[in-house]
């Protein structure tokens, strides 16, 4: 990967200042994405995946939310320093986003054609008629049958899978360099999920954009990603190539997830993968945030917070005791 980084997130921290206190939703997240690559971001519910992506889009609700620290370099330009007007030129154009809930992500009172055309008309210098034709072309590309008819239909006339296709068509209509997909398949049933993932993979080949794929489904990550960042309690705890991560996890949290999931297609949330609860973001533990659930935790873990370190080439882990994990793996004959 000698190419220029497309996006380079450094030490990002996004807090919500609520009446109950400060929610450190994202607290020191770093990763980078290269052009045309897919980075998977995985973690349990509430670990800060969506807040990370909305921070990149600068769509954090403010107040209460605020980017407190860090930089988000996109093609070398720090997005945290842009004003909203400058950001609007990037949103939907250079970086676009699809969301988890296709049922509610489209405006019910406008036709899908209008909603796709809106993005095109904002960012491209085309006439309404041309925009409409582009919208129809996009609907064709995402595999919607009878696109000329569908373009004039309203979201409620389409199934969930079809709506997600419309969202994808909309997000790709201006040929973005980065597509952020925030759990794009979670709300869909399994067969539709597979179709959407396949569609995204083929569109990626066609359009050449990079994808930031957010999910809590390890199976999805394995299928589409080049590299993976595992998040826990607002931080990236492990970061590696997808093969290395699955073949040889270097963080007790990741290892716990995999150990408990012999068939990785399963959904993280439904399994009590690791005993204990995700810590409350209003009140994170001192030191390593995983120490309340970690079988290897020591006193050091309860005082000092480990930073991401390269434990093997291109494989990063934030843990004081990777060695203990290795011992355990050897003992169990797993690895």
């Amino acid at each position: 990967m000698s190419k220029e980084k497309l996006i380079d997130v450094n030490d990002l921290a996004t807090y919500f200042h609520t009446e109950e206190g400060t929610v450190k939703a994202v607290d020191g997240v770093s990763f980078e994405i290269y052009p045309g690559e897919t980075l998977g971001i995985v973690g349990e519910s509430g670990c800060g995946k969506s807040v990370t992506s909305l921070s990149i889009m600068r769509l954090i609700e403010s107040p209460p939310g605020k980017i407190e620290n860090g930089e988000i370099l996109f093609n070398g330009k720090d997005l945290t320093k842009l004003n909203q007007k400058q950001m609007r030129k990037i949103r939907g154009n250079d970086i676009s986003m699809i969301f988890q809930e296709p049922m509610t992500s489209l405006n019910p009172v406008y036709t899908v054609g209008d909603q796709i055309m809106e993005a095109i008309l904002i960012h491209k210098d085309v006439s309404k008629k041309e925009a409409r034709q582009e919208a129809i072309d996009m609907l064709t590309k995402v595999g919607i049958p009878l696109p000329e008819q569908r373009v004039d239909e309203y979201p409620h006339q389409l199934s969930g899978g079809m709506r997600q296709r419309v969202m994808i068509a909309m997000s790709l209509s201006c040929d973005p360099q980065l597509l952020i997909a925030d759990e794009p398949t979670t709300a869909l049933d399994v067969t539709i999920q597979a179709q959407i993932l396949e569609l995204m993979n083929s569109l990626k080949r066609q359009f050449g954009m990079a994808i930031m794929m957010i999910t809590h489904d390890l199976g999805v990550i394995a299928e589409v990603s080049d590299r993976v960042a595992v998040m826990y309690a607002g931080k990236v705890v492990e970061y590696a190539d997808v093969k290395d991560l699955y073949g040889d996890p270097k963080h007790p949290y990741t290892w716990g997830l995999m150990y408990s999931i012999p068939h990785i297609e399963k959904d993280l949330e439904r399994l009590e993968a690791i005993p204990g609860n995700v810590p409350n973001p209003l009140n994170f533990p001192e030191g390593c945030k995983f120490n309340t659930r970690c079988q290897f935790a020591t006193d050091k873990c309860r005082v000092d917070e480990p930073e991401l370190e390269e434990v093997e080439e291109g494989h990063y882990s934030a843990c004081w005791h990777v060695d203990k994990l290795e011992e355990q793996k050897a003992k169990q004959g797993r690895g």
């Binding site: 949103r91 939907g92 509610t104 992500s105």
Partner: peptide, 26 residues
């Protein structure tokens, strides 16, 4: 607070268009 408002913003729609076109009608 609805998702489709966030979608509109993510498209690069101006804030007053978000309010007067996407939100008011609903």
């Amino acid at each position: 607070r609805r998702d489709y408002i966030r979608t509109a913003r993510a498209k690069g729609v101006k804030e007053n268009v978000v309010v007067y076109k996407h939100a008011v009608r609903n």
